[in-house]
Design a protein around this nucleic acid. Structure first.
Lengths: 343, 343
DNA sequence: TTGAAAGCGCTAACAC
DNA sequence: GTGTTAGCGCTTTCAA
């Protein structure tokens, strides 16, 4: 009784094993176990199923993928999974994948375009069914990203991006939402605002800042200046510190391109010995959960991030898909108290 | 000139294609492109590499996995990816995977043990190199989870859990950290505390609550009562609302089993018309980033979550691995102002 | 060193 | 309805 050499490396029962112990052919076993349309007699089906469960058989997805020529994976690429913005999106994607029995792989770009392209390239090895890119936020994407994305399409994978770039894209009404917010802030009595944005050319930032300006000015407000930084909490604090250094009059409103940045700014305001609200008002965009936890609560524009993640998933797998425009909603909270009309 | 039937479904260049255009055998092409130890003459190597890049070849990971009998994936299972606690862990895991050229797949348990077992079962299909479970927090795990985990080990996958259960486990000094916190709170002058925990039997909760009690009592404090709920923000708010309904004297300290829960409690305190700090003090555990954004800033115990995620990854792939005990640190902030000794 | 060929576990014609 | 068999794309003996 010599050891079976196959057992040298731990392995699991194969379809072959199941077929043999059930006394049927490989094909039959495959048909009953792995969802084929074809019919199998009830008696056979039973025997196969019993054998499979006795042996604890689980189909090897890699083998299935090579045989079928198509995988069951959706690749998700985000800038930073610890950022609530992306965490919410990821949760929506994961929910969709779970419902459809697909696997989601995740990779982090760290907001580095070079990394993004490199990762995208490596991802091809997975031959994913779809790729969801929620990362660059870099407007009409970098050339490298675009070309990698095209490569995926050639592979038969659907590419979905947040913002333009992919075959299908999930869009957020950044401009409209921000415009509405700007208008609302003006009607609250604010007349002077400072913007906190990313570098010029970054689509999301440009849209939000542009929309806000339009709305705010339409309501009689004026944008004093715009500080530039990034999407991180830290960056918000830095931009705000710089703003304070230049001087910020009481009654000024600060609009940050995202809640995370706005919250960073709130910290800086406090560290600068000022207070958020009557003194310096702050508003953001996204309505990530934290925005309700800070004091005062943050005025913002609600973006259904998790739903959008789910939509992105659908876009990646459903033949006919059209985005149902996400309903944006301005949420006025305590960080922007109404202001009696300036003199 | 008929169409190549292979082109019916979009496909990509195969190793075969590369070999043919380079004028070498499949074996040689494989050796140069996919890291074999074996030597290949420089001239051949060049030709193959050129052919590969000309054709834009990328190895099919599924095929590689079936052929090699081992995959390049690490499966990560978390309760809720939108929760900063898990987001941070995930980021650490992702960082490790990126460094080692591995793929991480992610799945969400939604804190549902049944789902957890079901997902774990489905995950076997991936034949992952390792499984990281950061989800149940349910003490000495459910039987179903344990048995699924055992199944993985039989497959040759390493199982890593946060807390006991897996082959290897990443532990957080919950008890010690909380004890230190309790002691510190007592030394600040607090004498009465209310605990906010999960159901009894949930390991993380028991450890943190138990540790805190021990430290607090050792310092002369008294635990008035413990409210039970879950790990969600919402749950924190509910527990605190219940606590307030029963009556909470000014000067009382609330210890929540996690920052997320503590922050939910802070909301409830405010909604109840009370204030956090001098009136009702609050402290948590984890030091997720939000804890510094709330006002007053939250006193807590710092847990290097992202590092732990990285460690979990290492545990899943490194032959010899031993956890380097995570340094815990009590961070006293404004949510627990020093209290003049009670009369 | 290089190449031919036998797998890896599974699917899908195709024939019975 | 069932089984045979030729793949899927890649790795890895084993000769040459």
């Amino acid at each position: 009784m010599t050891a079976d050499p196959r057992r040298l490396r731990p392995s699991s029962p194969t379809l072959h094993d199941v077929a043999r112990t059930a006394g049927v052919s490989l094909a039959t076993a495959s048909r009953v176990l792995n969802g084929s349309e074809r019919k199998v007699a009830e008696s056979f089906r039973e025997r196969v199923e019993r054998a499979a469960s006795e042996l604890g058989y689980t189909a090897n997805l890699s083998a299935q993928a090579t045989a079928r020529g198509t995988s069951a994976v959706i690749a998700l690429l985000v800038a930073d999974i610890a950022d609530p913005y992306f965490g919410l999106i990821a949760s929506g994607v994961a929910r969709g994948a779970d419902e459809h029995g697909l696997i989601v792989t995740i990779a982090i770009t760290e907001r580095d375009l070079t990394r993004e392209a490199r990762i995208l390239r490596a991802l091809r090895g997975q031959r994913p069914r779809g790729v969801i890119l929620a990362a660059s936020r870099t407007g009409d994407s970098e050339a490298a990203t675009v070309s990698e994305l095209a490569g995926f399409r050639a592979l038969g994978a659907r590419t979905v991006t947040f913002g333009p770039g992919g075959e299908r894209s999930v869009t957020i009404g950044n401009r409209d939402g921000a415009e509405q917010l700007g208008r609302e802030m003006a009607s609250l009595g604010y007349r002077r605002a400072i913007g906190l944005g990313a570098a010029e050319g970054v689509r999301t930032s440009d849209d939000r800042l542009g929309g806000f300006s339009a709305g705010f000015q339409a309501g009689g407000g004026e944008i004093l200046r715009i500080h530039r930084g990034g999407f991180e909490h830290e960056s918000g604090a830095e931009m705000m510190a710089a703003a304070l250094a230049e001087g910020v009059e009481p009654g000024t409103l600060v609009f940050a391109l995202s809640d995370v940045v706005a919250i960073g700014a709130m910290t800086a305001i406090r560290d600068g010995g000022r207070t958020v609200g009557e003194d310096i008002a702050v508003c953001g965009f996204d309505d990530v959960p934290v925005s309700r936890d800070v004091t005062p609560q943050l005025t913002t524009v609600r973006v259904p991030l998790s739903d959008l993640g789910y939509q992105a998933f659908r876009a990646a797998v459903d033949g006919e898909w059209t985005q149902s425009e996400a309903p944006l909603e301005v949420l006025v909270r305590a960080s922007t108290p109404p202001r009696k009309e300036a003199p």
